[in-house]
């Protein structure tokens, strides 16, 4: 796959679509949750207003260079993840900057934002940030293990490290999806997915009623707005990977929106049923339930 300059504006167009979709989808899910509690809920465009408000605050305080770079790293983690993975299969416009070994790069980008945030939040000097960051790193590390194993399993199964090739191998009906050809890997990956969505039962990192509100405690105005933008992009970028690896990818934007929304709802549904885990509970849970399934999936392949 050779590089052409036209890829860059197309990739930016993908980014634009995903940011807007992400902002609306988060609001929609908040609204659904509110309706479940018989509330009216936030307006669907509330996230845009919050973003403008935060960018328009007049004063900022910096705690140092790393504090400033934290949200930047976090955002580049989300954007990088999105840009190096094809979002629409078979479309030259929206295959973005994907290349032969992009699966490994994607794994790296998933972790990149968390590390950047850890450095930034640590420099803010707030004790709640430090607690949140140490919890977050421990939990994300445990949740990444089954994900990595599922990815290895899938890579072994299809003999490739290219996301495009993996999607290509799953075309021709839903019975070709990895979900049905390698259900163990998908199970391990979906358990890991729950751990990285910052929703209950794995939301002890932010823990709104306990350590208000974890790593971003000191972040405000445009720093916070950057984090909010990433909050819109990152889950979707991550879901795009899941969709491509396990659920047959998407061949058009409507299919893309539908699949992303449904995969996101998995974590929401689990979240409304189960209460919050403590860190050691969640790590133990990942190691006893998700990791063995991941190992098994590699062995089976």
């Amino acid at each position: 796959m050779e590089f052409t300059w036209s890829k860059i504006p197309y990739a930016l167009l993908t980014l634009f679509i995903v940011v807007n979709f992400g902002l609306l989808q988060t609001a929609l899910i908040a609204k659904i949750a509110a309706r479940v509690g018989r509330r009216h809920g936030i307006p669907i465009w509330q996230n845009y207003i919050d973003l403008i408000k935060n960018y328009s605050l007049r004063s900022h305080i910096s705690h140092g260079v790393m504090y400033y770079l934290g949200p930047v790293f976090r955002l580049s983690g989300g954007v990088g993840l999105l840009l190096f993975v094809p979002s629409i299969y078979g479309s030259t416009m929206f295959s973005n900057l994907s290349f032969a070994g992009d699966l490994i790069l994607a794994l790296y980008f998933i972790f990149f934002g968390t590390l950047g945030m850890a450095l930034g939040a640590a420099e803010s000097g707030h004790p709640y940030s430090a607690i949140g960051v140490s919890r977050g790193l421990a939990q994300v590390t445990a949740a990444e293990l089954p994900m990595a194993m599922a990815v290895f399993s899938v890579a072994l199964q299809y003999h490739t490290l290219s996301v495009t090739d993996i999607v290509a191998a799953q075309q021709g009906g839903f019975q070709h999806w990895t979900l049905f050809t390698n259900p163990l890997a998908v199970a391990a990956a979906m358990l890991s997915f729950l751990g990285s969505m910052m929703r209950p039962p794995f939301d002890v990192v932010l823990a709104p009623q306990e350590i208000p509100i974890g790593p971003p405690t000191e972040y405000h105005s445009s720093y916070l707005a950057l984090l909010q933008t990433n909050r819109a992009i990152f889950p979707i970028a991550k879901i795009v990977i899941y969709m491509n690896l396990f659920f047959g990818g998407a061949t058009s934007w409507p299919v893309f929106f539908l699949k992303v929304f449904l995969i996101y709802m998995v974590s929401v549904l689990v979240g409304v049923v189960f209460p919050r885990f403590r860190v050691e509970q969640s790590i133990r849970w990942f190691l006893t339930w998700a990791v063995p399934i991941g190992i098994l999936s590699i062995l089976v392949v």
Partner: peptide, 22 residues
């Protein structure tokens, strides 16, 4: 915050830290 009054529909939210609230 409850269903009866639901201030969220007016764009009102509670934030836990002074940095983020206005």
């Amino acid at each position: 915050m409850t269903p009866r009054f639901d201030a969220y529909r007016y764009g009102v939210q509670w934030r836990p830290t002074p940095r983020q609230s206005n």
